[in-house]
Design a protein around this nucleic acid. Structure first.
Lengths: 395, 395
DNA sequence: CCCCTTTAATGAAAGGTTTCAACGAGCGTG
DNA sequence: CACGCTCGTTGAAACCTTTCATTAAAGGGG
């Protein structure tokens, strides 16, 4: 931030967008920065100074309950009562206190409140991948419930990285959050057990809780996989590819197992399912899988693909179309999650829909129950998925 | 949660996935719930109880610094030193204290720390729409910088709703967060000025700060619009549609103005730009715009469309392909943001790329500077966008 | 007119951490 | 041997709110 300044025109410049000659910037040229700068994007075009700007103005030390009490000529406890139990305070005094708060610009200090209360009014949702609309929809459901209970939601992004996940969980414990909702990367993470033991309830989202692991909310992924594969079998496909990974994700395993179950029911041998493993559930990995799929000898090449999620399916779809493989003619495709982009793809994607918002809402409700209800019983709630057929399978 | 229980089989059931006969569930059938339940998805398939589950076990009251001090037979201040200034403590004592912390399972209480420090170790990013990958990428950049400074990032979703935005800002002020990064819905929100006045720095993201408004980091949207339109003009299009809205978003206005500037430079009258306004920047709105576009009389129908963001462009693209309008043959399309899905669309989308991660990183750096550097000067940093040409314009 | 009840307001304690001035011990120097 | 230093440790105060037992005042009934 510093170097950019000296080359600026005289201080007090009026134009906020004035272009400075010096492009230097404290955004250090680290590896990550370099990635974004590829192809020339990202060089700051201008560094200006908004009119009237100067050094940060000295912040007025925030007025506390004490100052308010003094201004309203009441005791400290009375101010607290106005905030928390207004019905105990006479209308006259209440008005006086409220006026004082107004005048002093009083803002409650949540830290002090949380310290006193022993826990902060925050729920956290640790998610695998915020760029996957599935998780943001779940988050929306969580926010609905949390908002109604006057709690805020702290969204944390584990990025499918176990270490980051662990770091966030530690952090949340330090914050004494009311509870944690999590779609874990690593089901074996000991913190999933130590947090509840230390008084911070944890609810698993999109994952089934094992013995003694507390509450969970999930969708029957085995059934979802079966629905997808059955749909393809019914449309006459007898060789199916399963595209997804890594195998450490239970969602991937379950969906694949469901597909195998469908084959079995149809009386077909399990080797009719060709597994194409991917390193992650992303669009890029889907594209990569397409090349492998198309590279298979024609005799063994599946005529349909079931992908572990929609991102992978969209990548696969794009590559197929690009390489001249007709969808669904040469290769039918089924995704999973039914994200908005699934319907929006140029060949709208058949997908397995999950009740995403409801998933989030239910999880949040279980969490609140666990946090507040002393007679809480752990539950593993499981919802039913549903197949949405679109053009990628129905020619 | 309550009704689900009584119909369960005998307590102590071992199977976590046991199916209960009673589908009832405390997830109330409110309006939002109903939306998700459309088409039958969302009915809980089962409510089970993980083996070994019971009422929440009484949490052990967390050990504090005091207990640790007692256990290690040192003073309270020494424990604090071990945590914050370990070099001041002799190795012997430090080891003793660390062992005590280990044994007691000591976890720092962030609330107390924040109370004492006057601010919590949290940055917040208030974003318009977490389901738009543009914002999650910006968030990733912010997290990189915050993580390096040992701060956590609180992600807040305003959902393009001014009231929610206001509520979050109030909340963040109460939390005494270190600073707020925001892509505001409502540039006129007075809180954008009151927060800094109360000592919480605010940096605008993807929006240019006006006079006396503090720091901002943005991309030159006018230039971006110009790049997009120029690209289309160079490819021979002389009637262009601009698809986007609402007009209250400065991004929309600027990008449109940039397109107009391109027309002007090319010596064409401004009425060659047909504006198709949308209510939001979503896939669904893009689809709707497609119908209006195709409905125009052939003589006035543009041969190309420039969309205010990629979501709108993808919706438009999908609908065009679905309705038999060849892309780019009958209608070329340019998007904005270059989100991953843009390249992944079946007709890969030409788009205007913004340095998203860098945007986030720079914003976070400005914020940290403002929070920590007493000689901080407000800056309006602006980056340059870049056009990425793909098949949706290049036949 | 006094006592008892109800209502309103008070003051102090507690919650866990950080900071800082002060203290004591050990050591080298004069 | 005494002085002054440094190093390691200490104890208390401060941060701001909430809670609760207590006091004071007002009102009603006997």
């Amino acid at each position: 931030m510093d170097e950019g300044d000296q080359a600026l025109p005289a201080a007090g410049a009026e134009s906020p967008r004035r272009v400075a000659a010096v492009p230097a910037q404290s955004a250090a040229p680290d590896a990550a920065a370099a990635a974004d700068r590829v192809a020339g994007a990202g060089r700051p075009a201008g560094v200006g100074r908004p009119a009237g700007a100067g050094r940060a103005m000295g912040a007025i030390r925030a007025a506390g309950i004490k100052e308010v009490a003094a201004a309203a000529e009441v005791s400290l406890g009375t101010v607290s009562n106005v905030l928390n139990r207004p019905q105990l305070v006479s209308p006259r005094t209440r008005a006086r206190v409220e006026r004082a708060m107004e005048e002093l610009g009083f803002v409650r200090n949540e830290s002090a409140r949380a310290l006193r209360a022993g826990s902060s009014r925050i729920l956290a949702y640790v998610m695998l991948d915020p760029s996957n609309p599935f998780f943001t929809d779940v988050a929306t459901g969580i926010e609905e419930v949390a908002g109604a209970a006057d709690l805020s939601v702290f969204l944390c992004n584990s990025g499918e990285d176990a270490a980051r996940e662990a770091r966030y969980l530690d952090l949340l414990l330090e914050q004494r959050v009311q509870g944690v909702l999590i779609t874990p990367v690593d089901a074996a993470n000991e913190r999933l057990r130590t947090l509840p033991a230390r008084g911070t309830p944890v609810v698993l989202v999109d994952r089934v809780a094992g013995a003694g692991e507390g509450c969970s909310v999930s969708v029957d992924d085995v059934l979802g996989g079966e629905l997808a594969a059955t749909h393809l079998l019914e449309r006459g496909h007898e060789r199916i590819a399963f595209v997804g990974g890594p195998d450490t994700l239970s969602q991937v395993r379950d969906r694949r197992d469901g597909a195998l179950r469908a084959l079995e029911r149809a009386g077909l041998p399990p080797d009719r399912l060709t597994v194409l493993a991917t390193g992650a559930l992303t669009v890029a990995e889907g594209r990569g899988a397409a090349e492998r799929l198309i590279g298979l000898p024609a005799a063994r090449r599946p005529t349909a693909a079931f992908c572990a999620n929609d991102l992978v399916a969209l990548g696969l779809l794009q590559m197929c179309v690009g390489l001249g493989v007709a969808v669904p003619g040469d290769c039918a495709i089924v995704g999973y999650d039914d994200i908005d982009f699934a319907a929006a793809a140029a060949v709208p994607l058949t997908s397995v829909r999950q009740p995403r918002r409801l998933l989030g809402r239910t999880a949040a409700e279980l969490l609140l129950d666990e946090a507040n209800n002393p007679t809480h019983e752990h539950q593993a709630v499981q919802f039913t998925p549903e197949l949405v057929a679109r053009a990628s399978t129905v020619g």
